[in-house]
Every structure is written in C-alpha cells, then in structure tokens.
Amino acid sequence: MRTTVLLGMLLLFVGVTSCSSDDDAAPLMEVESSKASNIHAPQQGGQGKPVSGPFTKFDFKTGKITTSDQEWDIAFRGTTIIVNGGAPSGTTDEPARSGEAAAYITSGTSLAGVTSVDTSKLTQDGADGLAISTGSGEGWYTYDSTTHIVSPVVGKVLVVKTRDGRYAKLEILSYYKDAPAPADLTQEIILGSSRYYTFNYVYQPNDGVTTF
C-alpha cells in the first residue's frame, strides 16, 4: 500500500513538472517582413579618388538606421556594404566591429525562395575582403560605365547573420532616391540622387532559428 502511494505521488510530481515546463516555454516570435526606403549612404571621393566618409549603419531588430557604435548589423557607404563582425578590412573610416555578424550572397533566386540559412557559407569582413563583395558584377550590383547607372542584379539575395546571432535576408531594389523605375532614370537622378538604398528584408527574431 505504501509503495503504491509513493508511486502515485511520484507520477503526479512528474506530471506537474512536465506541464510546468511546457507552460514556461516561450512561444516563438513571428518572422518580420518589411521594406527599408531611402537609406542614404553618401561617400566622399570616388571616380579614381580615395573613398572616405562615415558608413550609414542599419539595425534589423529595430528596422532603423542607427548611430550606435555597437547595435548595428550592416552598414552602407556608396556601393559598399559591411557587416558588424570580423576584423577591419582596411577601408577608410570603417566603424569598429563588435558583433558576430556575417553574410553571404545567393544567386538566381528570389527573397521568398530563400527559406533557410546555409551557415557554412557565412563569412565575416576581414583583411582579405568583405563578406559582401563589392565591384561591378562581383556582388549585388552592376555598373554601366556609359550611363553610370548602378543596377541591383536580379536574383541576388543577401543573407545576414546579425550581430547577436539572429538572421535576416534582403533583396536590394534600388540605389536611387524613391526607387525610380529603370526607364525613368535621368542623368539628373543618376548624378544627384544616387546612394539611396531601398530593399525588402525579412528578419528572424528567434535565437538559433535558421529558417524564414
């Protein structure tokens, strides 16, 4: 009889503990989809002259530009994009990297087509180069030396590990203010309203979750 009572109490304790554990498990937060418009990324120099100037830093968690020295994930200057992870690349005026951000570029797909992160492809910035390659045809864009138009390459999606180990993906739509259609790009826009990023992005806010 005593053995039976003790066994019953043990089973009750296990059941209560199990239920309590299930109740305490935090539900996953929803994946966030959004659009960033007119992220201004000016630079000094270029056209054969040394490039310099501060980078414009972006935080996926807030979906906003930030001036924080630490709470940023990616940063833009001209056509160059850096991540908050790795080591200095030797670029003039680059901010110090304090996070664990990394990135890679996928080709021949759409934003919706990237459903998970291939963590084996993630790389960080460093002296040997940037995680997101720069240069016409080398990374996310092409440059037409005749028209001077910078065009995002269709099918290029940037996959990013954020500074604190979450993940995001983005597709750059335009390099010009208010994202004009290619047919509407005039010389005035090209020369006076460039270096304004518009991109769609998806942010995975849950720690350790590599799917979107």
Score class of each variant (00 low, 15 high):
N38F: 08
E71A: 15
I105R: 12
A103W: 11
I65K: 15
L158F: 05
D125T: 12
Y167G: 03
G8S: 13
A183S: 06
T17I: 11
N38V: 02
F13W: 12
T79E: 04
R166C: 15
F76I: 01
T80S: 12
T67W: 03
A41Y: 03
L7M: 13
Y196P: 00
G137N: 02
L111Y: 03
V209K: 13
T186A: 07
T123N: 12
T198Y: 06
T3C: 09
T186K: 01
A183F: 00
T119L: 05
L191T: 14
Y203C: 11
M1D: 09
D125F: 00
A131F: 02
K156E: 00
V51D: 00
K169M: 06
A103H: 07
Y176P: 05
T17K: 14
G129K: 05
G90K: 03
I149D: 04
V117K: 00
D24L: 15
I149F: 05
Y196F: 15
G139H: 01
S116I: 07
R2I: 14
A25E: 15
T186C: 07
Y176W: 13
Q187W: 11
N206W: 07
L7V: 03
T17W: 14
G113E: 00
E94C: 04
P54R: 10
F212H: 10
T92W: 00
V51H: 07
D23F: 14
I189G: 07
P50W: 09
H148Q: 13
E30G: 14
Y203A: 10
N206P: 11
T186G: 09
S174Q: 04
S37W: 09
S20E: 11
R163L: 08
A87T: 12
S20P: 09
L158Q: 02
T109D: 01
D24S: 15
G126D: 09
T62E: 03
R97S: 04
G86I: 06
A102G: 13
I190V: 09
A102C: 08
L28T: 03
T210I: 14
L6K: 07
T109A: 02
V5T: 10
L173S: 08
Y104S: 02
K35H: 09
I189S: 11
N206L: 10
D59E: 08
I172M: 02
Q47N: 14
D69L: 01
Y201K: 06
